[in-house]
Design a protein around this nucleic acid. Structure first.
Lengths: 237, 237
DNA sequence: GGATAAGGTCAATGGTGTTGGCATAAGGAC
DNA sequence: GTCCTTATGCCAACACCATTGACCTTATCC
């Protein structure tokens, strides 16, 4: 077996599978995303994916070096989806806010996939495009290079970190096999006031609060910090 | 086989394994932590853990309901380690800072384990104790219940989210089997200026910056926000 | 000292990713 | 239109995984 995988743009022969479907990198990733949504983040297996595609599992290795490579491709597809149709307005603050919320929203919209990919560095095309876009927004706004890099770092890490965490809390309760079933109701709300008074008094509020994401608030605080820096800069000019 | 696992405090008979070692929940978790550090986050398997303990893999099921249950126990051990020796000073701001940095530090100190556990809700003793402590700090400081819950939510989510992300970037490069090998040097630094000008110009700075964690900065901003709220509160009194 | 059952062990089941060898048909050359 | 090359799908096999039911040994209690 050839160790190297033929890159998508070099593919010429499109031989249909036994049952007639014609494979492609895109079709495989899309099917994988659907399977993740339906079967949970542990439900993506080579055999099942082959079954869903009406193809032998080993065929996947003509398109990806392995399941890990496929995982990275799925992650990059999410980033690409987030960037789709986005255009810079020229106002750095709303541009960053838009990018952050878009990325976060797409990940949260595919929680099972996000769980697998949110803390991976893919190095693939869409991820590079996103990084380039963020850096460009900051540089175009006039931030010096060191500030640009610092803000970029905080921004992208915060976005991805919250995306992963929020995805996890969305994905896990639906995992049919996972034992994490609504821990907030089953455990926290039933703690006796004598041993855990603070949790007990806060339990009702916690139950409603913990469902929402803290990301929008945290993002706005980060943008506030960047804005303050920009003010200091223009004052010194 | 009994479906129920005998809880640690109920264990009475301590029968040594064939090779003489005496098992316990604590010993298993400690061994698992060591294996995670040595073999990476995918290197913790029942078979290998059994081998390391000189016991049959199936013995583990006398102590945990399954590998997932063991994972939660590992996570709770990390939280316990973070809380060990911590005492509230009465100054809410430094108390929260201390708790956040401690939790983050322990997770980052066990990256492979953190990767597995950081976005799980264990509902076990140490996690409950940590939540109780955070809530108590805020309530004792005089925050009303709704504010307490909101700040608690942002604080714990941000801490765990960054812990997971930072752990991932620390753990993956050492994963022997993972293809993610120093992506920043191998891919980002070699991008041509023509297609990715912003990444190209920032590459040297990025390479040094991206190694550090953005958590301390983000934590301080969160505390600033909480302090501003506290000021507004005391002004209204 | 004997009874009881906790807890360690064995063997088996059905799942997983991955690979080498093989067959077949797609598409270029003429 | 026919032939050749080889890309690409398929099959069978391998080594690993978690989990479980039955068995047996021995620590602990009375």
């Amino acid at each position: 077996m050839a160790k190297a995988v033929v890159p998508e743009e070099k593919r010429r022969r499109r031989r249909p599978t036994r049952s007639g479907t014609v494979l492609s990198e895109q079709l495989i990733v899309e099917t994988a995303l659907r399977m993740l949504r339906e079967h949970g983040s542990a439900g993506l297996t080579a055999r099942r994916l082959g079954l869903a595609l009406d193809a032998d599992p080993s065929t996947l290795y003509r398109y990806f070096r392995g399941m890990d490579d496929l995982t990275l491709a799925i992650g990059d597809a999410l980033v690409g989806q987030a960037l789709q149709g986005w255009r810079p307005t020229g106002e750095w603050r709303s541009d960053l806010r838009g990018l952050g919320l878009r990325i976060h929203a797409v990940y949260v919209g595919h929680p099972q996939a996000a769980l697998l990919t949110a803390n991976r560095v893919t190095g693939r095309a869409h991820e590079l495009a996103a990084d380039e876009a963020i850096l460009d927004v900051l540089r175009t706004a006039g931030f010096p290079l060191p500030d640009t890099v610092r803000i970029y770092h905080a921004f992208i890490d915060q976005t991805l970190a919250f995306a992963a965490l929020d995805a996890a809390s969305l994905a896990l309760p639906r995992e049919s096999l996972s034992a994490d079933e609504d821990m907030w109701r089953s455990t926290y709300a039933r703690l006796p006031r004598t041993t855990h008074p603070r949790i007990a008094e806060a339990a009702p509020l916690l139950a409603t609060r913990m469902v929402d994401s803290a990301y929008p608030t945290a993002l706005e605080m980060l943008l506030d910090g960047a804005a303050a820096q920009w003010e200091a800069l223009s004052a010194r000019r």
